[in-house]
Deep mutational scan, measured.
Amino acid sequence: TIDDAFRAIERAIQAENEGRYREALKHFLDGGEMIVTAAEKEASQKVRNLLLHKGKEVLEWAEHLAEWILE
């Protein structure tokens, strides 16, 4: 659900702030994927587009974090 997705993102932010970057990455990926999944089930085109945009933002952040971890 969207609530689960945002809880995962909150955990990711907390982990990132505490320097637990790999854990943060996992939570960002989980949250982003949950948002995209919820968007695919959404009946309203406007809400679907907003959710897809937010999911994409979260997944892009996860990608940047992963690249930073690997440096």
Rank of each mutant, 00 (worst) to 15 (best):
I9Y: 02
E16Q: 15
W61N: 03
D30N: 10
E42Y: 10
L51I: 03
Q45S: 09
A5K: 00
D3C: 14
A24I: 01
D3F: 14
E42I: 13
A12I: 03
W68C: 11
Y21S: 01
E60F: 05
Q45A: 13
K41R: 13
K41T: 07
M34L: 15
H64M: 12
A12T: 00
G32K: 05
D3H: 14
T37Y: 08
A12K: 00
Q14L: 09
F28L: 13
E16Y: 15
L29A: 01
K56Q: 09
W61Q: 02
A24Q: 01
H64L: 14
L70N: 09
G55H: 13
R7E: 08
A12L: 03
G31N: 03
I13A: 04
I35Q: 02
G31H: 06
D3G: 11
R20V: 03
A39I: 10
T1K: 06
A15C: 12
A24D: 01
W68Q: 05
D30H: 13
Q45Y: 08
E18N: 09
M34R: 05
E16V: 15
G55Y: 15
N49Q: 11
K54M: 15
A38R: 04
N49L: 09
E71W: 05
I35A: 04
L25P: 00
V47T: 06
H64I: 06
K56E: 07
F6M: 12
N49G: 06
A62H: 01
F28R: 00
A39C: 11
E16P: 01
Y21F: 11
E60D: 09
G32N: 09
V58W: 12
A12E: 00
E16D: 15
I9H: 00
E71S: 12
H64A: 11
R22M: 12
L25T: 01
S44T: 11
L25W: 10
K56G: 03
K46D: 14
L65Y: 03
W61K: 11
V58I: 13
R20E: 05
G31F: 14
D4Q: 09
E16S: 15
K26S: 06
D3N: 10
K54G: 07
N17Q: 09
I2T: 04
T1Q: 11
E71H: 12
M34V: 04
I35C: 07
T37R: 15
K41C: 10
N49F: 11
A43D: 14
R48Y: 09
E16M: 15
D3E: 13
S44L: 12
A5C: 10
A8N: 05
V36M: 14
E63I: 11
S44A: 06
E42K: 04
F6K: 07
K46M: 10
L29F: 05
W68N: 01
E33V: 13
M34G: 05
M34H: 03
N17M: 12
L29S: 03
E33G: 08
W61F: 06
S44D: 15
W68P: 00
E42M: 10
G32P: 02
R11W: 09
E67Y: 10
A5R: 01
H64S: 09
E33Q: 15
L52V: 05
A24L: 03
E63G: 09
F6S: 03
A66I: 08
R20I: 03
H53F: 10
M34Q: 05
G32D: 01
L59D: 02
E40N: 10
G55D: 02
F28M: 05
F6P: 00
A43Y: 07
A38S: 08
Y21E: 00
I35M: 14
L51V: 01
R11A: 12
W68T: 06
E63V: 12
L25V: 09
V36T: 08
E42V: 13
L65Q: 01
E60G: 08
E42R: 03
V58K: 01
D4H: 09
A5T: 02
T1R: 07
H53I: 15
L70C: 15
L51S: 00
A62E: 00
T37E: 10
V58L: 09
T37G: 06
I2G: 02
I9A: 01
Y21H: 01
A66P: 00
A43F: 09
A15M: 06
G32T: 08
A39M: 07
L25C: 05
A15R: 02
R20W: 04
V47M: 13
W68E: 01
A5S: 02
I2W: 07
K46C: 14
E23K: 03
F28Q: 02
V36I: 14
L59E: 02
L70M: 10
E40F: 14
R20N: 10
A62N: 00
E40L: 15
Q14H: 10
N49K: 06
E71I: 10
L70T: 09
G31D: 02
K46S: 13
A62T: 02
A43L: 13
M34S: 02
D30S: 12
L29C: 10
K56D: 03
I69Q: 01
A39R: 02
G31S: 05
I69S: 01
V36A: 10
E67M: 15
E10V: 09
A12G: 15
L70E: 11
A62L: 11
A43K: 14
A15K: 03
R11M: 14
L70K: 13
E71C: 12
E60K: 11
A38K: 02
G55Q: 04
F6I: 09
R48P: 02
E33M: 14
W68G: 02
E57V: 13
I13D: 01
E23I: 03
W68D: 01
R11S: 05
A15G: 01
H64N: 08
L51E: 00
Q45N: 08
R48K: 12
L50A: 11
E23D: 11
L51D: 01
V47R: 12
A38H: 07
G19A: 02
E71P: 05
A12H: 02
K41A: 09
L65G: 00
Y21N: 00
A66V: 07
G19C: 09
N17G: 06
E71Q: 13
R11I: 09
A38C: 12
Q14G: 02
Q14Y: 05
E57D: 04
A5M: 05
L65I: 11
D30T: 14
A43H: 08
V58S: 00
H53N: 13
V47C: 13
N49Y: 06
E60T: 08
Y21K: 01
K26W: 06
E42T: 09
G31Y: 08
A39H: 04
K26F: 08
K46R: 12
L59I: 04
E42F: 10
L52G: 01
I2N: 04
W61M: 07
I2S: 03
L65C: 04
R48T: 01
I2P: 01
E16N: 13
D3M: 14
E10Q: 10
K56S: 05
A38Q: 07
A12N: 00
A5D: 01
R22L: 13
T37I: 11
E33N: 14
S44Y: 04
E67C: 10
L29P: 00
T1I: 12
E71G: 11
K46Q: 13
L65D: 04
A12P: 03
N49H: 08
A15T: 02
N49V: 05
M34A: 10
L25R: 03
I35V: 06
A8I: 14
K26Q: 12
A8Y: 10
D4M: 11
A24V: 03
L59M: 06
E67I: 13
H53L: 13
E23C: 06
I13V: 08
L70Q: 12
H53A: 14
D3Q: 14
Q14I: 12
F6E: 03
K56C: 14
A62I: 09
L70D: 08
V58M: 08
A38M: 12
D30M: 14
G19Y: 03
I35L: 15
S44C: 13
